[in-house]
Nucleic acid binder design. Structure first.
Lengths: 341, 341
DNA sequence: CTGTTAGCGCATTCAC
DNA sequence: GTGAATGCGCTAACAG
């Protein structure tokens, strides 16, 4: 049996109250001698307060939940690391929830986390969430009254607390780089176009184009799915549309493009310049190393956690509500001046 | 305020006990009518038991802790996914703890998890743990009386519950493959040789060698550190030792080798055959795709969780105590018959 | 069949 | 300065 506060009381011959007072730093009027006696007993018996009991009476568990789709995804593991590191710095703990992008699991986990009395929830919504499902999730979330912060996606209609990266800017930076090099026919391998991030990156692409007076050509846009296979497929689909550069909306599909292009005997960047998005560590190792847009994912996790902690009833600071972090372009060897035309 | 069991009692005009009984499936003698009434009220008021309170009285939290060094490491994120999936299937939850391989944090997290009343701990010890530290950790662990399972490493002296992969066999398989192809001078880029996994892989390497009557040559062994940089450095270090193949003890250092070799104008597998270990997803994309030993990491997480759940007081099944999972070789394009000699 | 009571481990208000 | 009493939300003997 674990030693309880009662054991300390018996051992010292004092009451439970006194022990509790000194252990919680509210012992203004307790003489040093008593304090010492208690601390010594605590140390001797190895007493540590049962946090379940503390949680019941204080109504706080020093625990937050993180709802993501799949921790194996490099994006989310980076995020989770940022979250956990910030948690540790504040003496909090993290419950990890993988939904595999199933809306139903979002709901289930929100309920479970509420049951467990978490003090906050970091929520990266499942991508299968359409407008209706999003509203369902957020309605449930708000019915729990638990502070929450949305990650990587927003839904301003219902939720004003979020941390995202600027996808529009990322799309712009990648495209601008290619335009600056002289490319005028730039293909896009997007993600699913019902997702905000893909949509915004495409917006950035268009903005860059118009800034350089390059007409937008819808034929150059291939709607991918953020997978390796999608990237490979895009190469086939774009084969007959003249272009000198490809902007893949994530590194994974860039690898697919890279792979398929090589199979067909093309060289990067000689025949095609290629830009990715995410700057996964592997992009550095690729041959040639991949130019890619870097998103501060770890920071998203870290900042979101900070925000969430601020929203805790205890330190109810409602000042900062949203954060848009800035991506930047990492230029490597997969891009150069166009060769053909 | 969240609705409590008391609210249901008032609402239905019944006592708290009755509510508790039907909600916990112990209502043999409660008439259907009463049950229905209660269930309806529960549904209507959206009542869900506060798990903190339940935990306090039942002394179980349906939560386990996972202590690893860094979730960003592909190995651990795969592991964690296996753990979390199995948890979900059993209605459990997971608290994630990253130690960054700092022994002190191992200790801190063990204490915190115990304070939180977790029902079990999955423990992948920090690599900076020498014999003394290992004993310290496990002694602390056992003082909590919380069931635990060690992951990926063993310490039979104190702990008999673990799930590992067979590193010796993995080392053997990789080496055997190269020997079978005709290689007789096989360099090794190991991990830190004070770690069991590295040591065992080297043992497997030696066993394969002796089976094929190839003398062991210590000059061919380069002690790396499982990093990209380590892999790169090994190429320089091994430059003057004649060899036709390289067995890197993890994929990351294999990438380093691959990279450095290419920089020097060598071709894989023409000039050197290369085998990695871990079979990280990227190994498939590498050019040429990397032959690698696949460890069933997800399964390690999954099986360890199953084991842990079995060890729970409720279903105290002490039968299975250890599990050694089997790796296998995935042959791709980075290995072929030796060209030189 | 259902209600009363006690207690899980702790924090806290109010007396002494 | 310190202790007794109360309650957090729930489960589980034990009555009746």
């Amino acid at each position: 049996m674990r030693t309880t506060i009662k054991d300390i009381a018996e051992y010292t011959g004092l009451s439970v109250t006194t022990i509790s007072l000194v252990l919680n730093g509210k012992a203004d009027k307790i003489p040093e001698k008593t304090k010492e006696k208690i601390l010594k007993a605590v140390d001797h018996l190895g007493y540590r307060p049962n946090q379940v009991a503390v949680g019941l009476v204080k109504k706080t568990t020093k625990t937050i939940g993180l709802i993501i789709s799949d921790i194996r995804n490099v994006f989310f593991s980076n995020l989770a690391k940022g979250v956990e590191d910030e948690c540790r710095r504040n003496g909090w703990n993290l419950i990890l929830c993988n939904t595999n992008d199933m809306h139903e699991r979002d709901l289930a986990y929100i309920r479970v986390l509420a049951d467990k009395g978490v003090d906050g929830i970091l929520y990266a919504m499942s991508v299968d969430s359409n407008r209706e499902k999003t509203i369902e999730s957020l309605t449930l979330m708000e019915s729990t009254r638990i502070p929450y912060v949305m990650l990587d996606r927003t839904f301003r209609e219902k939720c004003s607390h979020y941390v995202v990266t600027n996808h529009e800017l990322g799309g712009y930076l990648a495209t601008q780089h290619l335009l600056e090099l002289g490319h005028r026919h730039i293909a896009c391998v997007t993600g699913p176009l019902h997702l905000d991030d893909s949509l915004f990156r495409l917006e950035g692409y268009k903005r860059a184009l118009s800034e350089y007076d390059v007409p937008y050509n819808a034929d150059l846009i291939y709607e991918g799915d953020y997978t390796l296979e999608g990237g490979r497929a895009s190469v086939k689909a774009l084969a007959n549309i003249p272009h000198t550069a490809i902007f893949a909306f994530n590194d994974m599909s860039a690898y697919g493009v890279h792979n398929a292009l090589k199979m067909q005997g093309f060289e990067i960047p000689k025949d095609y310049s290629l830009v990715g998005y995410d700057n996964i560590f592997f992009s550095e190792i690729l041959d040639p190393p991949l130019t890619s847009v870097h998103q501060p994912v770890y920071e998203v996790g870290k900042e979101a956690t900070k925000l969430l902690i601020k929203m805790t009833p205890k330190s109810a600071d409602k000042s900062v509500q949203e954060l848009v972090l800035t991506p930047h372009l990492v230029i490597r060897k997969s891009t150069q001046k166009p060769n053909k035309e």
